[in-house]
Design a protein around this nucleic acid. Sequence first.
DNA 1: GCGTTACGAGTCTGACCCGTATCGTATTTC
DNA 2: GAAATACGATACGGGTCAGACTCGTAACGC
Lengths: 199, 199
Amino acid sequence: MTSTADAPRSPGRPRSIRADEAIIEATLDLLAEGSTIEALSIEAIATRAGVGKATIYRRWAGKDALLLDALRRLKGVMAQPAGHSVRDDLVLLVGAIGKNVDPRAAKIMPCLAPAVNRSADQFQLYQNIISPRRQLMREVLRRGIDEGVLRADIDVEVTMALLTGPMLIQRVLQWNPDLDEQSLPERVVDAVLEGIQVR
Amino acid sequence: MTSTADAPRSPGRPRSIRADEAIIEATLDLLAEGSTIEALSIEAIATRAGVGKATIYRRWAGKDALLLDALRRLKGVMAQPAGHSVRDDLVLLVGAIGKNVDPRAAKIMPCLAPAVNRSADQFQLYQNIISPRRQLMREVLRRGIDEGVLRADIDVEVTMALLTGPMLIQRVLQWNPDLDEQSLPERVVDAVLEGIQVR
DNA sequence: GCGTTACGAGTCTGACCCGTATCGTATTTC
DNA sequence: GAAATACGATACGGGTCAGACTCGTAACGC
């Protein structure tokens, strides 16, 4: 976190906000262009941002801290279900999976998969990001049960995995190139709702 | 590919099969111990395998070629559905997702996620590995339709994503730590079969 | 036993990178 | 205008690694 705090005003030249921006942007750009997290070097970021290395080290302790800030910037606002139709809310939530405001996110997200399971810290960070989103879906499912739209005997957690999984593997892994991503949320939700068995 | 071909017999000392094995094993071991693909160095592999660097370069053009062979080794045999019950076959196939004979696979697989989408070559390799498995599941679903167990109007491709996704995100990303992986295949298959909607 | 090839171990050059320090300059407060 | 802090640029020592190379030795066919 860059100290944009309420400092009473320190003497000397203040830190350039443009440099802050340039560094974060350069980081995200390089990642989106295909660099892996660990292949990403401070030197490359500095050059790309048109900034001296010292300017980066003055703000962040190291690559990890910088990445943390950069990725935070990437996270979009959470989708807000309308609350009318359970099906429509689920389509909205499923469609929001792995979708961020920043178009670079699509390229960057797959890189995070390995990082997430390497250290407990990063795993926790990841869980912190997705758990409110999971909670949102959980509430919609519970509401569906309460309203009598969904069966009362379903396993909510498994159902969430059912809805999330297909979207995630498609967006992050491009699991099946022939699958149309555009219509996938709707089709997934409907399939899960109706089941595939003959009745 | 190591040339274990049908060479008529070349003069000189033959390549050591033990060295071949040791190099591949060292590679997989290092990956399973948490090394990332790109952090993995030929030098480290050579040291771990008790082998000279030249011995590796004599066999493979570079890290990529070596990794290709190593990962090939990792892929287990494909599950073979019994063909009696569609449900049981699906449970078997879903349970086999991301599950390999080699226990190291579980640690290694997440690392491949980013690599897969970096280059067209690696993406193709990945598709080559999973597409026969996808075909297997596709056939089971078609059989289910033919036998009248599954509805004829389902989208087979979406259904496959539905069955595969939850298992994959759980095994590869540990998406939800609270989800019991053991019973997941059965629960996923049943949920997809029956749907979650009140009927 | 001779030519050939492989072996493990090691060396060497040239990259690239980290994190710190030091330039001369620019911008701010007092 | 002086002190303080920032800036971009660049140099530094210390580190890792790729690949090509060199040892002396080992295993094979003829």
